[in-house]
Design a protein around this nucleic acid. Structure first.
Lengths: 220, 220
DNA sequence: GGGAGGATGCTAACGCTGTCAACATCCTGC
DNA sequence: GCAGGATGTTGACAGCGTTAGCATCCTCCC
């Protein structure tokens, strides 16, 4: 990676890309500024012309990771046929989003972990009280919006009863995110692929049942 | 913290305690071996007589954190009155466990994060395929056992239908653990205490509904 | 066209970390 | 009472994030 001129021309992006690769391979802790600079063929301090700190570099990677997560969710959304009835269609979409989320976590554990890491935990001294919307860190705004819209649709079609509406997105997100964590860093690390499929299906069932009361009789 | 004799006498425990305090204040990343040694009043390398590596020190803290989590869950279990009927009693217990789990996460974020961190992510080169039981890392075995027993009880009393039994613990754990993560590192960081109570209650409701189909009619 | 000056890169250095090797001290069992 | 293992110390190394000061290049304005 030798560059012809003294100036790189696109260092910020190149560093972000290199750092993203590091995150892919080893999660957020593997994102080391000097290594990224080395990969790009530039001195470590050159990075400081484009990122104020190590934390900012990680934050850039976090953005990339969150975008890829959103892409994966979109792909899963399009992978199965829409249903004619809006109610079941909303349920299908919710499942698809959860599926995409979990597939991304399993396929790209390093990026997934980075998307949810807390860069500069003690750096930003005084965390201002802000709305949940703003606290979303912007990076994860796309995946969250997709979830919001689907839950909203679920409520609009009547599948999600009004008394269950409050915090319904958070419940769904919690279950799916928690499973991802347990699969990646927790007690489910050593699951066989087969077991993984089962537990993913079970949790998505549980989410659906927690939002849409199951009809009487045995489930499909 | 001056000690009378050349030998400390209980360095391993002292280091673990100091490291635990660091974890309390700043999470797993704040557990730095040299700082723990400094606090105890001992040279950094003395730690290596008791811990093979930084990772092992963190692992010790992880154990402590997991134990405190289990304690908190037990406390919450005893905080409300048992119900006469075994079915509702099992449901009460499940809720209490989730509540304790989440309170601990909120009250001791540093320890909670440490309990679920992945020390020496790349250290243990070849992760042998092992049972879920063994993958549990032992540290978290107590909280998991409590959950298992309660879900088992739920099944025994018939509250949890047989077709919903498989992976039911994991579903419950996922939802609660995911919420903890979202509250600590995720988009719910900036929740007001009031909102936090609401969302905790909602997720516990969702877990219950995902396991025990709600009876028809409006919920309490 | 040719400087002025900002943008971008470099080297050197600081303090911090985990870790190792070699040495010092203490305690315990024969 | 002493040999040897257990435990603690000093010194050093490489790697990290970060800063200061210097070098190079590009752009824009006269």
């Amino acid at each position: 990676m030798t560059r012809p001129s003294y100036h790189h021309g696109d260092l910020a992006n190149a560093l972000t890309a290199a750092a993203t690769q590091l995150a892919r391979d080893g999660g957020p802790d593997a994102v080391v500024l000097r290594e990224a600079a080395r990969k790009v063929g530039v001195s470590a301090t050159a990075a400081y012309r484009h990122f104020a700190s190590h934390g900012e570099l990680i934050h850039a990677v976090k953005h990339v990771a969150a975008d890829r997560l959103a892409e994966r969710m979109k792909i899963e959304l399009a992978r199965t046929q829409p249903l004619p009835d809006p109610g079941p269609e909303a349920v299908r979409r919710l499942r698809a989003l959860g599926n995409g989320y979990l597939r991304f976590a399993v396929d790209e554990p390093g990026l997934f972990r980075t998307a949810f890491c807390n860069p500069a935990a003690a750096q930003v001294a005084t965390v201002e009280i802000m709305s949940v919307e703003h606290a979303l860190d912007m990076a994860l705004v796309d995946p969250f919006r997709m979830l919001m819209e689907t839950v909203e649709e679920l409520a609009r079609t009547g599948m999600l009863a009004p008394e269950r509406r409050p915090w319904a997105e958070i419940f769904a997100w919690s279950a799916v995110h928690g499973l991802a964590m347990l699969l990646l860093d927790g007690p489910l690390q050593a699951c066989s692929p087969d077991e993984r499929e089962q537990v993913i299906a079970r949790v998505l069932d549980g989410v659906a049942d927690g939002l849409v009361p199951p009809s009487p009789g045995p489930r499909a």
